[in-house]
Computed example of a mutant assay.
Amino acid sequence: MKYALLPTLITSGLLPVASQAALIATENFDYADGSVVGQAGGTGWTYERTDEAGAPLQTPSNWNNEFGTHQIVSSALVTNGGGVRREFGGVTEGAGSASNEREGAFRGTGTMFFSVSYTPTTGNQWAGVSSYDFSGENAEKIFWGAPGGANGGNFFGIDAVGDGQTNSTIPVVTGQTYVLIGMLDFDNDLLGLWVDPDANDTVVSHDVSRAYTGGNWSTSLRLASGNQVTWDNLKVGTSFADVLPIPEPSASLLGLAGAALLVRRRRL
């Protein structure tokens, strides 16, 4: 679902504004139907965590093909035996010095959070979000979602690639839409996953957690699946609050917003 009315409500002062200082990027996949490869919409994707001497001026990174089948359908991303990836920082890619991708990287320190809407339309297959250490073979380091292997994509969990899985008892129900929040906390050596977080959730209330002492970098996120999955409303930040989804306002709240705006106009 989209949140088109939120800017108006926030501007009018009818909804609280969370701190956005550490928000790295958002993506609602508002593109025409077709390939997402090369698209550079959303907000952010120009993150500069470290100043890389000689790197060009930041312009937003774009979506890269990783493998298989993926496309935009009705302003959402659909993957089906395929995946796409986008860097946190800028259009200039590469593990070598003086690239935007290096500037935006979490270099084995700090904390990265993401949230995303996830709807599996076929079952019994892996699907999830991966943190990459640049690109290429063995670049995928951490996987949040419905891991494959012995889990078979049937329960939500975390896979520290090459180091094992930690799975929950929360089943993946075909056709149901979930909100997933993932955490990579280098400073506290911890991975976390929340499934459908609510107002009572905090940064320590994850549904799944796993110790992690990897010193790799995190430069980008990949959305991918072995089955058909619809993705939407992706956010990336450096705090739990940054990526919490804001629900669509109720009809009564919208009515209150309209009345307040009308009163304000009459007073001007």
Rank of each mutant, 00 (worst) to 15 (best):
G148I: 15
N151K: 10
W126R: 03
P171T: 09
A55E: 14
G192F: 05
G44K: 04
V129N: 05
V208Y: 00
N124A: 15
V236G: 05
E248W: 13
V161M: 04
S99Y: 09
R222H: 08
L268M: 14
F114N: 03
V161I: 14
S252C: 03
I181K: 13
V73G: 10
T79M: 11
T238Y: 07
P249L: 07
S117Y: 00
L223Q: 09
Y212W: 11
Y3G: 11
G82W: 10
T79I: 07
I10Q: 04
F106D: 03
Y118Q: 06
A53F: 05
A98H: 10
I158Q: 03
G68H: 01
N200F: 12
T69I: 05
L254G: 03
V179G: 00
F186L: 06
F143I: 03
L221E: 00
N80V: 09
W217L: 12
A251S: 15
R107V: 11
G110P: 01
W217T: 12
I24M: 05
P249H: 09
S209I: 12
P171C: 00
D33Y: 05
G90M: 11
R264M: 09
I142A: 01
F155E: 04
G44R: 10
L223N: 10
S117P: 00
F155M: 09
F156D: 11
N62A: 12
E137G: 08
L253D: 11
A211G: 08
S218F: 03
F155D: 03
P56H: 04
F113N: 06
G182H: 01
S205V: 12
S250I: 05
A199S: 06
G81H: 10
T230V: 14
A22F: 10
R86V: 05
T219W: 07
V204K: 09
F134P: 00
E103C: 12
A21W: 01
D189G: 06
T11L: 11
T238R: 15
G123A: 12
P7F: 01
D198H: 06
N151T: 00
S252R: 07
L256K: 04
A211L: 07
G104S: 00
G34T: 03
D51M: 11
S75K: 07
G145D: 06
E66W: 06
V37N: 05
E48T: 12
Q58H: 14
N154P: 02
Q20D: 14
H70M: 01
G54T: 11
N227F: 07
G149K: 08
G214T: 09
V17M: 06
E48S: 12
A146N: 10
Y118V: 12
T219Y: 09
A98T: 12
V204A: 15
S250K: 08
Q228A: 13
Y132K: 01
R264I: 03
G13M: 08
G192S: 10
A55C: 08
L262C: 10
D133R: 04
R49M: 10
P245E: 02
A22K: 15
A199Y: 08
L77K: 14
I170S: 06
L234E: 04
V36E: 07
V36L: 15
E248C: 12
F240A: 09
Q39W: 09
T50W: 06
L221C: 01
R266F: 14
